[in-house]
Structures are given as structure tokens and as C-alpha cells.
Design a protein around this nucleic acid. Structure first.
Length: 297
DNA sequence: CGGGTTTGACCTGCGC
DNA sequence: GCGCAGGTCAAACCCG
């Protein structure tokens, strides 16, 4: 299933495909330029501003699915379905709805657990029954967002608390994929972390869903915490990807990139100045979508 | 003791 | 229908 997804992700790395994408890229540039305020707002400011701009960039990123640097790993299922429609039209399913749906599924599961008996056979048949009922109400997957980060640390600190619930070997890759769930109650956000087998220094973090709560780090005056976090450090050093789809994980971007807090926190602000994103993008020119985005105007 | 990680088993979806 | 690979579960274990 997500074999496709893996392929999709890695295909974007393929430098030989970039030529075919110039057209889409230029469209992306236009949209990004239109989306960005002429006043060179920060990336985070951009995400924090109106939904209009937000949507514009979403669209831009959608186009950029075919581009070189902004690598997206939109949910493979929705992608397949979307292939029959326009590229921008697909991923508009409300993540809240999906979350609610998942909640109901979870509560069903809890009921399952409550009613679990000692008899293993019975347990198995129950499981099968619950699976059957699950099968009927095939819930749509939440949109996914893949972030590539050059880092030696696999699990990057992003301000949220995660519980690892699984690890799997990835086909054709020496590096395992780890599965994490947000530890916050009722939050159904998941993320997968794996290392690129082509470039082991790159960590691929795929987020699924949207947090329905505040970032714990944000709640306790986050700028210091985030700034000192390894994630921030690595992100400052090399942001190599962004996302696509309408429900961008804004918090992540806020942490990934200098926030308004930088303006109030002199140390952070200085750090930002010293570590300008543009300066630290370590990819070749044709990778430079984000770079272009920041150098626009 | 509570919360997180590890890991083998199991489930599911997809391609052949 | 079968096999494969991804995704999830849950018991055992670890750690502060």
C-alpha cells in the first residue's frame, strides 16, 4: 500500500525528473509569489495570517508536489483517488471530521477492550467481528505531510509529546520506520519517522492529522524551549522540505521557522539572523524552491 | 508506579 | 486466492 507512498517520496529526490517539472515549478513560483506578501513576511507569519494566504500556499504546495525541493507525501490513498481529479481538488477532507470519526472508532475499540474476555478464541472472534464492522465504515485517511530534515537525530523535537507505538523495517532500506502517536488525550495525530536510504543524513517525518490542542511547548513560553531544541537547531540548519494539502501543520512550521517570538526574544532573533534559512539550505540550485520562495522580492 | 519503548504477532490492503 | 509490505496492537520490559 504505502509502498507507493515511499516511491512517491523518493521519486521527488530524483534529479533526473526535475526537468520535466519546470513548468509546474514556474506555476508554483507564480502562486507562491502571489501568496506571499510583498513585504517579505517570514514563513511563519505567512502561515499565521489569513486563510486566504494559507490556502494560496496550500495550492502552491500542491503544485509543488511535482517540484524538486518541496517534497510532499500526500496520503497515498487520497492521492490515488485524486489522480482522477485535479491535483488541487483532492485533499480537502476536513481533518476535524476525520478526527471525530476516528474518535468514534476509538471509543468502539474501548468498548471492545472492556468486553474482552479471558477466552482467547472468543477474543479472536470478537476482534474479527470488530474488524468486520470497521471494514464496513472504511474511514478516509487524514492528509499527510512529509518533512525532510537534515539531522542526525531520528526523532526530532517539535514541541509535542509523542509515544512510539511501533517500528517496522522498510523494504529496500536499511533504516527502520518508527511510528508515533501524540500522547495528548483525544489527539489522533500520528507521525512516522524514517531515514532516507538514499541520503541517510535526511530524516523523513510524515505527519498525519492535525493537533486538536495547543503545543505543550507553546504553553510554557515556548520560544526558549523550542529554540534550544535539537529540532529547531537542525531545522535551522537545513530545512529541506515542506508539505502539501490544505491542512498544513502550522505549529510545525511555526517551530521550524522563526516565529514572532523571535522579535521579542533578542537571543532568538539573533539566532535567526545568524541562521537564515536561505543561507543554510544545502541543496543544489534546482532544489531551491523554498529558497526561491524566500528570495522572492 | 506511571509513562515510554521494544518487539513479535496480527490485521489490512494491494498487486499479481 | 495468495503473498507481500505497511500499519497497529499489546505484552513485556525499561527507566526515572
Amino acid at each position: 500500500m504505502s509502498n507507493d507512498e515511499g516511491k512517491n517520496v523518493y521519486q521527488q529526490y530524483d534529479p533526473f525528473q526535475y526537468n520535466q517539472l519546470d513548468m509546474n515549478r514556474s506555476i508554483f513560483h507564480q502562486q507562491a509569489a502571489a501568496a506571499l506578501d510583498p513585504g517579505l513576511m517570514s514563513f511563519t507569519n505567512f502561515f499565521d495570517t489569513s486563510s486566504l494566504e494559507y490556502n494560496s500556499l496550500s495550492k502552491a504546495f500542491d503544485v509543488s508536489c511535482c517540484s524538486s525541493q518541496v517534497i510532499s507525501a500526500v496520503d497515498d490513498v487520497s492521492k490515488k483517488k485524486a489522480s482522477t481529479t485535479t491535483p488541487n481538488s483532492s485533499v480537502s477532507s476536513s481533518s476535524n471530521e476525520a478526527a471525530v470519526e476516528e474518535d468514534s472508532v476509538k471509543s468502539n475499540k474501548l468498548e471492545d477492550i472492556k468486553g474482552r474476555c479471558e477466552n482467547k478464541d472468543e477474543e479472536k472472534s470478537k476482534k474479527q467481528n470488530s474488524n468486520l464492522s470497521k471494514k464496513k465504515e472504511k474511514r478516509p485517511r487524514e492528509p499527510r505531510f512529509a518533512f525532510l530534515t537534515k539531522s542526525e537525530i531520528d526523532h526530532l523535537e517539535d514541541g509535542y509529546r509523542w509515544r512510539k507505538y511501533g517500528q517496522k523495517a522498510v523494504k529496500n532500506s536499511p533504516y527502520p520506520r518508527s511510528y508515533y502517536r501524540c500522547t495528548s488525550q483525544k489527539c489522533v495525530v500520528k507521525k512516522r519517522v524514517e531515514r532516507s536510504y538514499q541520503d541517510p543524513s535526511v530524516v523523513i517525518t510524515t505527519y498525519e492529522g492535525q493537533h486538536n490542542h495547543h503545543c505543550p511547548a507553546t504553553l510554557r513560553g515556548h520560544s526558549a524551549g523550542i529554540m534550544s531544541s535539537p529540532f529547531y537547531a537542525s531545522a535551522s540548519a537545513s530545512v529541506t522540505a515542506a508539505s502539501s494539502g490544505p491542512t498544513l501543520p502550522q505549529e510545525l512550521f511555526s517551530h521550524l521557522l522563526p516565529t514572532n517570538n523571535c522579535q521579542t526574544d533578542p537571543a532568538a532573533s539573533m539566532m535567526y539572523q545568524n541562521l537564515s534559512l536561505q543561507q543554510h539550505l544545502q541543496l543544489p540550485d534546482h532544489y531551491g524552491l523554498l529558497q526561491d520562495l524566500f528570495t522572492q522580492k
